[in-house]
């Protein structure tokens, strides 16, 4: 009797111990597997940084282990930061991105507010249409747009990007903002309406402050789209003073058959830096905005 109860008491204890051990194994196994994945996934950025620290002589010597710089140097970075063309590309990317973000966010915040809170005949259809237009890729439209950009006289003009990038950013930004605005309780704007606020006032005083996380997420999206865009600038721009960073690096630093790999990789590091910094600080907002549909329900 007492032996039986002892045994009965013993089994759960051993079970929990093995469960605990199982969990520890699962934890360390997960860490190990993740570490393998991280190493594999970070090979290209690592190689990018390593190459950017090599001198041209070291790269063209083609000897020894290429996976670390034998005599690290900043000459590539110094070259780029004093190279007017590169600075020009960088500056073009900066102002195009700034304008794109500004225009896209203004358009999508206004539209999202109108579609979620004010509603008018056909607003539901428009909301669906916005989502569908997000699914139309740039590579489907770049040829007709080439003609349209041509009619507007904007071929080889950086301003064409300010016109076109919002079409890539606005649909998804509006979609994110619709999600955030819908989650704001109706009572809030009803109360404001009773207090005599107008709709624009409600938007500026209540919705924008309350939906700030969503605005940050949408802003990051617009920034990412505009900073990394490659197809439109490649198709519509061709002279050095008009190019943006992505296209500028490829068309300027690859000279015929001569690849200035050290400088190309240094330029890539500099070009990748702004998004990496933005994500390092604001990643959580962006992921929350992106996955808001996945976490609910």
């Amino acid at each position: 009797m007492s032996g039986a109860s002892l045994a009965a008491g013993g089994i759960p204890r051993r079970a929990t111990a093995s469960l605990h051990r199982q969990r520890v194994w699962a934890l360390w196994g997960s860490y190990a597997a993740l570490a393998v994945f991280v190493v594999i996934f970070l090979v290209p950025p690592f190689y990018m940084i390593v190459t950017s620290l090599k001198s041209s002589a070291e790269i063209s010597a083609q000897q020894g282990n290429p996976w670390y710089p034998h005599s690290p140097t900043l000459e590539n970075f110094i070259y780029l930061l004093t190279y007017n063309n590169f600075l020009r590309y960088f500056w073009n990317s900066v102002w195009v991105t700034a304008l794109t973000v500004l225009v896209s966010m203004t358009i999508s915040i206004m539209a999202a507010f109108s579609l979620t809170r004010m509603g008018f005949w056909g607003s539901q259809t428009i909301a669906t249409g916005v989502f569908l237009s997000y699914l139309i890729p740039a590579s489907l439209l770049f040829i007709p747009l080439f003609q349209i950009v041509g009619w507007l006289g904007l071929i080889n003009n950086t301003w064409s990007l300010v016109l076109l990038f919002p079409t890539l950013a606005v649909p998804f930004c509006t979609w994110i903002m619709i999600g955030y605005f819908s989650s704001i309780p109706k009572e809030l704007d009803e109360a404001a309406l009773i207090d005599g606020a107008s709709y624009p006032q409600i938007l500026i005083r209540i919705f924008i402050p309350v939906a700030l996380p969503g605005i940050i997420a949408a802003t990051i999206f617009a920034f990412t789209i505009s900073w990394g865009a490659f197809l439109y600038p490649l198709a519509y721009l061709y002279t050095g003073d008009q190019l943006t960073l992505t296209v500028g690096i490829i068309s300027d630093l690859i000279r015929g058959d001569v690849f200035l790999w050290g400088k190309i990789m240094a330029a890539c590091v500099l070009g990748a830096l702004p998004p990496v910094i933005v994500y390092a600080f604001l990643m959580d907002y962006y992921i929350a905005g992106l996955t808001s549909g996945a976490t609910k329900g």
Partner: peptide
């Protein structure tokens, strides 16, 4: 998560160069 997101954060045109 931050480390694994790096491939997705770098502009694709630039990482393709590497």
């Amino acid at each position: 998560r931050g480390l694994l997101l790096i491939p997705w954060v770098i502009p694709l045109a630039l990482s393709t160069l590497s």
